[in-house]
């Protein structure tokens, strides 16, 4: 875990309301693993007060890491106006990364909206022949161009709610279709996105007895396990009633979480 002031290399809009920011930090970049996040201080003022957590969505040239964010509130509205030459205080890399140690298995990476961020990093380090990225958005204007983080369009399927690009419908339709025709062993699932989507992916995984890891989002204060503000209900197989998203997650096996309480 490193705390430092990092230079912004670029901060550009790559889809509607969606920004890709690169920050220079050889230290954080060399430690970062897919699924981990950084806590970013968006301004030095007392309002807004707290740092914001952002998944790391990739690295560049060994000394930069990138975050992908959608402007949704006060913090991200400040962030969108930052640019090259500005510095931001960053703390990271934090949290438990995805576990993708199993070789030879196909992985489905299931993304809802801006939840694609940690999965872009994961897709970038996986063997392209072994992973398929399924991404859902509201409309085509929101679609994140994956080549911006160095990925190819191959093995990418897109769904939009309004049908303006790819499949008309939700990303779990795509997953359903893929799993329905899958005949090459048991795939592993990795998912990040809105809660209803995660619940659907988890239910499909339980039904088919597939291994599935999800990256979960909550409000956070410290990001490092001190405040216990980011608790989520654990399943009965865990020894404690709550797990901390910042420390025990943000990546969890679906079997660690109490899905009814989420």
């Amino acid at each position: 875990m490193i705390e430092q002031e990092a230079d912004i290399v670029f901060n550009r809009m790559i889809a509607r309301n969606t920004f890709l920011m690169a920050l220079k930090s050889p230290e954080i970049t060399s430690l970062a693993r897919p699924g981990q996040f950084v806590m970013v201080r968006v301004s030095k003022s007392a309002d807004p007060l707290l740092r914001r957590p952002f998944s790391i969505c990739g690295t560049r040239g060994g000394d930069c890491f990138m975050i992908l964010y959608r402007v949704v509130g006060v913090g991200t509205a400040i962030l969108r106006n930052a640019g090259k030459g500005d510095r931001l205080s960053v703390l990271g890399p934090l949290g438990r990364p995805f576990d993708f140690s199993e070789k030879g298995k196909t992985s489905f990476l299931v993304a809802g909206g801006i939840g694609i961020a940690p999965l872009l990093f994961l897709a970038g380090v996986m063997d392209p022949g072994e992973c398929m990225l399924l991404a859902g958005y509201g409309t085509s204007a929101e679609v994140v161009p994956v080549e911006q983080v160095g990925l190819s369009q191959e093995n990418l399927l897109i769904a939009t709610d309004d049908g303006t690009l790819g499949h008309k419908g939700v990303v779990t339709d795509l997953l359903e279709g893929q799993l329905g025709k899958w005949r090459r062993g048991r795939p592993v699932l990795f998912a990040c996105g809105p809660l209803p989507m995660l619940k659907r992916v988890a239910a499909m995984s339980f039904e088919r007895e597939l291994e599935c890891q999800v990256s979960v989002e909550t409000a956070m204060a410290c990001g490092i396990g001190a405040c216990q503000g980011c608790a989520v209900r654990a399943s009965s197989r865990e020894t404690q009633p709550y797990l901390q998203v910042c420390r025990h997650g943000p990546v969890f096996s679906i079997r660690s979480l109490d899905w009814k309480a989420l």
Partner: peptide, 18 residues
């Protein structure tokens, strides 16, 4: 003590509630 159910924190002007 397990603590309270989430959400447990929220940011407020120049502060936070926990």
């Amino acid at each position: 003590r397990p603590g309270n159910p989430p959400p447990r924190i929220v940011e407020t002007p120049c502060g936070m509630l926990n």
